[in-house]
Nucleic acid binder design. Structure first.
Lengths: 338, 338
DNA sequence: TTCTATTTGGGTAACGATACCAAAGTGAAA
DNA sequence: TTTCACTTTGGTATCGTTACCCAAATAGAA
């Protein structure tokens, strides 16, 4: 095919099709005014030559990249993956490309990522959470593009917000347990504030317990966040040894909850007979494990879908004020809690 | 801060720092020849103004984007996520950015994605699997950049290959079961060839069974790939009803294997007492579930890390011939198989 | 002090597409 | 036929950075 390594440009295509480069440019845009006949001739010529449209030139001249920058804490998390899926499905019809990066739950890394991304001139930027380094915050404020914070409801948003209060969601779970007559409730989570949403959940747990006048000190720290199944199992082992009279455990995520459940299975501890276990996130495993896990569904895909819809509205000028969209997480009661 | 919406350029920074734009450009590259004093002054000036480097212009002029395009079947799969992690960690020190897209196990979608990506002029492109539409294959062949196919060992690679034979990996599992004296072995997988690696695994199962002179017809089709926990559970229900004398089941992935296991738990079928179950992928759940699942570890992270290393070598000109790197998946024997 | 390396900084053109403006072509109405 | 409204095509300059080439400054050697 294209054996010569010389770069082909629209000028080459234009020459072959007997038109001007300008017309070639138009032929490659769906909505522009070229007669269908010439467009087909041009696309044919381009195909014959093996021409590949060069976005880098287009980006510079048109000052549009069609990139939407998205940062998530981890690429290996089904919840965030669902948000990205919702986002990308909403953006695809408009030809917007996601520029995805993960911060590894590290705000310094997030700052670096945001800086790298802004250099690439995205049309908008979506970040996870409402907490950032001061410099990251400043960069976002001055970026001159729509900024959407997700998975949280920060007090002082940078721009748009689509999320929920992690603390309040956990409070709902605690309220439910207390209503069922439980008092000795524990929380399993990471041992730092690195995962800020995880820390918010723990804070929500403590606040809710205190609001009920209950002991909020049954906190099992299970290593550096994000904690997963293994850490959940280890934490449960410690819980069973140090606080054997615990009646229920709320875990920072379904993954740690499932790990905790497996530890009970290994030790012959009956769930929910002797101990209740709940998670967070409504991962697939929560629904299918035996027993199925009570959890909280924050509708990750919706977060993504609504973020996409918002971005399109803002880019279309249909939305000028900063939006604040609250998602209502749903308590999913299953067998692991009675 | 930067209230005016007018775009700042290097010329603005140059004026403020009292140097030429050319020197500003040098100050933003780490290895170029500017005195440390002027560099600091320039960076200070840039920071004062709120200048943000414009990659789009840089990309065009330098004909380098520092993008590595990567397509994976699904963003919601821990195996592929691990590969991406290995990749991005290997590429980060060189300032290479991953441009990630997912095909949803659809070759037509992969073709569209590849076309979109090539327009952005990446330095290299990594694809999952060795099967593509003819047009996608042609585009990759003519892209003029390194192409790496992963997670497979195709007969006719486009360029470089880093992967393993899915069929052969499953054959190892069958061999093990047969050596243990089992003969009635079933396979649970998706019901189309949409997931080509999944289809390869099923083919490997059939070939291995036939090689042993055993009945290879115990194939449970469990819906449109990729199948996950729920489909695994449904398939197991069907298997237990239609072929109750089955001694062992190999599942196309650990997720479906775990789903199958939960169905056994719901029905009181003892695993491994009455039935063995094995998966593929060595997901975290395989190690922690009760019983732990026998599986095959294809070292997804290694695939990514070695792909990154290969890309760097090729870009450095240290590697000119097409590499063919075979990963050896490891059989992980756990409690679910005796 | 003179002269040769070496470092540091500047000028100019170009990367390849498209925004903007203008002209030519087309068909219907007058 | 002429005019007008509209569609289709072309010409030119430009987006913001950097490759390339060269000059000035500085350092070190003789």
């Amino acid at each position: 095919m294209n054996t010569s390594r010389k770069t082909l440009t629209m000028a080459d295509v234009a020459r072959r099709a007997g038109v001007s480069p300008m017309t070639v440019s138009r032929a490659f845009k769906t909505d522009s005014s070229v007669s269908e006949a010439t467009r087909q001739a041009i696309l044919k010529a381009a195909d014959d030559l093996g021409y590949v449209f060069d976005s880098t030139a287009s980006n510079l001249r048109s000052q549009r990249t069609d990139f939407i920058a998205v940062t998530i804490p981890s690429i290996n998390n089904a919840n965030f993956a669902d948000t990205v899926r919702g986002l990308s499905e909403g953006l695809k019809p408009r030809g917007l490309q996601i520029l995805l990066g993960y911060t590894d739950y590290d705000m310094a890394e997030e700052e670096r990522l945001i800086e790298q991304f802004l250099r690439r001139r995205p049309e908008a930027i979506v970040v996870t959470g409402g907490r950032h380094t001061p410099r990251a915050r400043r960069m976002l404020e001055n970026a001159g593009i729509p900024v959407i914070e997700t998975w949280d409801l920060p007090d002082k948003p940078i721009g748009h917000v689509i999320g929920f209060s992690n603390a309040q969601a956990v409070r709902g779970m605690v309220d439910h347990f207390v209503a069922k007559g439980l008092t000795r409730i524990a929380f399993i989570g990471g041992d730092t504030t690195r995962d800020t949403r995880g820390a918010d959940r723990r804070n929500g747990f403590v606040a809710a317990m205190q609001a009920h006048g209950l002991d909020a000190s049954r906190l099992i720290a299970a290593g550096v966040p994000p904690i997963s199944m293994r850490e959940g199992a280890e934490a449960m082992a410690r819980l069973l040894e140090t606080l054997p009279d615990t009646e229920a455990v709320i875990c920072v995520s379904d993954l740690s909850a499932f790990g905790a459940l497996t530890e009970c299975q290994r030790r012959g501890v009956d769930v929910p007979g002797r101990l209740w276990i709940a998670g967070f996130g409504d991962y697939e495993i929560a629904e299918i494990s035996v027993p199925a896990l009570t959890t909280i569904n924050p509708f990750p895909r919706d977060i993504g879908a609504r973020t996409a819809a918002l971005i399109l509205d803002v880019l279309d000028g249909k939305q000028d004020a900063a939006a604040k969209i609250a998602i209502s997480p749903e308590l999913m009661l299953r067998q692991s809690t009675g």
